[in-house]
């Protein structure tokens, strides 16, 4: 199947007093029609910037964003506008994502007005249809955002994204600000909508459990790069990159795995203005060797559809559990193969 969206070597640098903040630094991935690509990583890894650059809220520094065969990266706003309906967004904060001075009906009517669709009465019907689609009653149209609960507001945000019948929706931490009991409602809604409407999602989140639940494939980002990308099944059954493993280890699980000692990742995220040389994760990686400090890892295919950017990926993929010190030694021995391959 041809991809709906193909991102190729995307860079987005923000100018800064001391240099450039390399928020996104060489990211490539594809999204097929109707699938969900999860994008996980910690704050500052650039995942939100990826989402916003694809939406062309930012102009990319370099790289291609190919939407249905057309590169939208270099387009000016006027040329971009006709293409905007295909990609919509659902935001994190259900408070600031709705205009506090507009009634819900007006907010949902806006897309139709902008695109000159239908007459006033038809638009009203469409608004009601949208509200029903996201599980709200027609009476919500006369309310102001502050009269709704957080969950209801997020439903309105989703309805607005659906109005133009997009092919892709970027969900940027779309359920992170919601209470636990409401979060499940919204996740189910997103999944149901995808099934009936065939929309693709780029699902950006820091919450691994949620990402696993909604995604077909998942990309893990660290400091502006994708370190591992695979199907959700592959990634959870066989995480390879040391960062992916650390992330999985750190995220709390229910029920708690009794007696399992967590391998806690040490240190903090390095600065994206002056990222570490070689592999960016080497400063915090337990398996880092000399080559990691010097040479940027190339992408290694662990299986069809499962790629990892790590010098020791091959060795790590064979080590079943987290390697002990001995295995670590084996790992160190194996680096020559990888290094010479470069």
């Amino acid at each position: 199947m041809t991809p709906l969206l193909s991102v190729e070597d995307l860079h987005k640098h923000f100018p800064d007093r001391v240099g450039a903040l390399r928020a996104v630094d060489g990211v490539s991935f594809q999204i097929k029609p109707g699938e969900t690509l999860g994008l996980v990583g910690e704050s500052g890894c650039g995942k939100s910037t990826v989402g916003r650059t694809i939406l062309r809220l930012y102009k990319p520094t370099s790289g291609r964003i190919v939407l249905e065969g057309r590169d939208i990266a270099p387009l000016q706003e006027s040329a971009l506008r006709p293409l905007r309906r295909d990609v919509q967004m659902v935001f994190q904060d259900p408070f600031s994502s709705l205009n506090p001075r507009s009634r819900i009906g007006r907010i949902l009517e806006e897309p139709f007005v902008v695109w000159g669709e239908g007459r006033a009465r038809d638009r009203r019907d469409q608004v009601v249809a949208l509200l029903e689609r996201v599980g709200l009653g027609a009476e919500a149209a006369d309310r102001y955002p502050h009269e709704l609960s957080g969950g209801q507001r997020q439903r309105v945000g989703i309805a607005r994204a659906l109005a133009l019948k997009p092919k892709l929706i970027v969900c940027d931490e779309a359920v992170s600000a919601l209470d636990v009991s409401v979060r499940a409602q919204i996740i189910n809604l997103l999944v149901d909508l995808q099934r009936t409407l065939g929309i693709a999602y780029l699902f950006i989140s820091h919450d691994l459990a949620v990402v696993e639940h909604v995604s077909n494939r998942v990309a893990v980002m660290y400091l502006g790069r994708i370190v591992e990308i695979a199907s959700a099944d592959q990634l959870w059954s066989n995480p390879i990159h040391p960062y992916t493993r650390a992330l999985f280890d750190a995220s709390p699980k229910l029920p708690a795995a009794a007696g399992q000692k967590r391998a806690v990742l040490e240190g903090d995220l390095p600065s994206a203005i002056d990222p570490p040389s070689g592999c960016r994760f080497h400063t915090r990686c337990r398996f880092a060797t000399d080559v990691c400090r010097r040479v940027e890892p190339i992408v290694w295919q662990a299986a069809p559809g499962h790629s990892v950017a790590c010098h020791h990926a091959e060795a790590l993929s064979m080590a079943e559990a987290i390697p002990t010190a001995q295995q670590n030694g084996i790992l160190k021995g194996s680096r020559h193969d990888n290094a010479s391959a470069l």
């Binding site: 939406l55 809220l57 506008r81 006709p82 905007r84 309906r85 990609v87 919509q88 967004m89 935001f91 994190q92 904060d93 600031s96 994502s97 709705l98 205009n99 001075r101 507009s102 806006e110 897309p111 902008v114 695109w115 945000g157 607005r160 109005a163 133009l164």
Partner: peptide
């Protein structure tokens, strides 16, 4: 975010200024 949502839906800048931010 609500202004970004308008940009994403393709609303022209003058409309965003007048109908969304100004009120």
């Amino acid at each position: 975010d609500f202004v970004l949502a308008c940009v994403v839906m393709g609303m022209p800048s003058w409309r965003i200024i007048v109908s969304q931010i100004f009120p």
